[in-house]
């Protein structure tokens, strides 16, 4: 049986990771895979740490991705990438937006933001694919397109044609934002 591929999308509540997982789910479903997408609503939407699991393959059972299982982690923020890196499997790739968003304990001075966290990850032989997705999103025309920039970067690592990704974008975002998001995707893919 074909192995299940595991993708985690992590970030800060409000960054648009839900749309990213929805788009990814739709794309993979269209490719004929069995797919599970799992997310947690509620408390986590209020600026908290959010995590979504996307799994696909011939037959997917658990909706959860556990320690050492993720083929890819797409992190919308540095610290969140570090928080969930234990879920990455050996040889897996962490695609990380280099944006820093201070959590409340850092804001109020109760904790330090580990500034060199990505270097530590690289030192531990984690495949870290860094990308300034916020800057690229702004180039595309909106800071809200961070999610699509990151999907563009993920697409580079996966075996699905860009045409199909673009089609998934066209069917997932409002018509007025299609061009902006296509640009965001390309910037993420090519940067």
């Amino acid at each position: 049986m074909m192995k299940t591929t595991n993708i985690m999308i992590v970030g800060v509540g409000g960054q648009g990771s839900l749309l990213a997982s929805k788009l990814l789910g739709k794309l993979l479903c269209g490719e004929g895979y069995d797919v599970k997408v799992s997310e947690v609503h509620g408390m986590s939407q209020r600026g908290g740490s959010v995590v979504t699991y996307v799994r696909f393959g011939e037959k997917v059972y658990s909706p959860i991705i556990d320690k050492g299982e993720a083929d890819y982690i797409i992190s919308f923020e540095k610290l969140e990438g570090a928080r969930y890196v234990s879920c990455l499997k050996e040889g897996g790739t962490l695609v990380v937006n280099t944006q820093q968003i201070d959590p409340m304990p850092v804001i109020i001075g109760a904790a330090e933001y580990p500034a060199e966290i990505l270097s530590e990850l690289e030192a531990k032989a984690v495949n870290v694919d860094k990308i300034d997705a916020l800057a690229l999103a702004n180039v595309a025309g909106s800071s809200k397109a961070v999610n699509i920039v990151l999907l563009g970067r993920l697409a580079k690592h996966m075996n699905i044609s860009t045409e199909k990704w673009i089609a998934a974008i066209e069917s997932s975002v409002k018509p007025a934002f299609v061009e902006l998001n296509k640009k965001a995707f390309e910037l993420g893919y090519n940067s």
Binding site: L79, S86, P103, M104, P105, I117
Partner: peptide
């Protein structure tokens, strides 16, 4: 799996 030495502040 990988574990980190750095303390990761919570994000409630």
């Amino acid at each position: 799996y990988v574990t980190l030495d750095a303390a990761i502040p919570v994000r409630p």
